[in-house]
Write a protein that binds this DNA or RNA. Sequence first.
DNA 1: GTTGAAAGGCCCTCTGC
DNA 2: GCAGAGGGCCTTTCAAC
Lengths: 163, 163
Amino acid sequence: MSEDTKTVRRTRDRRGQVDATDRKLLGLLAQNAELGYAELGKKTHLSAPAVHERVKRLKHSGVIRATVALLDGSKIGRSLLAFVHLETSNWETTRRVLDMSAFPEIEEIHTVAGDTAMILKVRTESPAALEELLSKFHQLDGFKGVRTFIALGTYLERGPLPR
Amino acid sequence: MSEDTKTVRRTRDRRGQVDATDRKLLGLLAQNAELGYAELGKKTHLSAPAVHERVKRLKHSGVIRATVALLDGSKIGRSLLAFVHLETSNWETTRRVLDMSAFPEIEEIHTVAGDTAMILKVRTESPAALEELLSKFHQLDGFKGVRTFIALGTYLERGPLPR
DNA sequence: GTTGAAAGGCCCTCTGC
DNA sequence: GCAGAGGGCCTTTCAAC
């Protein structure tokens, strides 16, 4: 085995690895992705190019899924947040719900264990808009039941943080 | 009333207003905040300085809460996602739960209508770590009950989108 | 709001350690 | 894998329309 091959192996093994410095960077970027590499370097005792290298690797490996603008729901005309628990009688119905990802008021779709089948996070303009969305669920073949929990207040809302 | 005052009024009224072009920009930035102003301008038929002006206003007015890196939960060692419904017997207990925002595994805390009091979104390293977190809830004075829904699959997960 | 241009800063790469 | 220096792109601002 050549030296080159060993180097490749080592590099390949390193992919997907996240060390303590990476976690520090991820924590900072998860809160504010507008920080410059120089500033990130100061906070992590690294040089700007070193930070750049790490961030590039974290993006390419998918640890950083995307960099996005977080919008204020109420300020874009979506003042009603609700969690919808859906019971479906078969997978084909579940499949149809997943196809509803195109609805902009649906933010999250999870399948869950327990006596419900799916949990959706939805944000609508009004109670009427929520009712309209719920009526669409009722119309689905294989629909068994739904329970809706309307959020009165949101005290924390963020994405995944590193350990 | 002077002309100047009327101008000020008009400017002030414009704050917090979000027109169709703003919504287009917000939709693009909510998916990918790394787009340049020139590119955003092409997609919205605006010049780069005009885009810059709008985005600055949207950030300053809080419509854009922040620009953040979205992390992949499983790739940062948080493979278990769960929704926790908490019943508390009084507001003081609710207050104590809100103070748990410091826990990095807690991503969201909402108070809700319906026969539960709070919904939490939590992402832990393992079932054991979830159990440990749940035990902390049980230890709270005023704790009434908890129901946990473990996500098996996540098919959609994004932030608020403009209308 | 647009165009055009200019200044500054930051990204990104390259090289050497 | 990390630090220092350079080219170049893009942001950001300012004019004039």
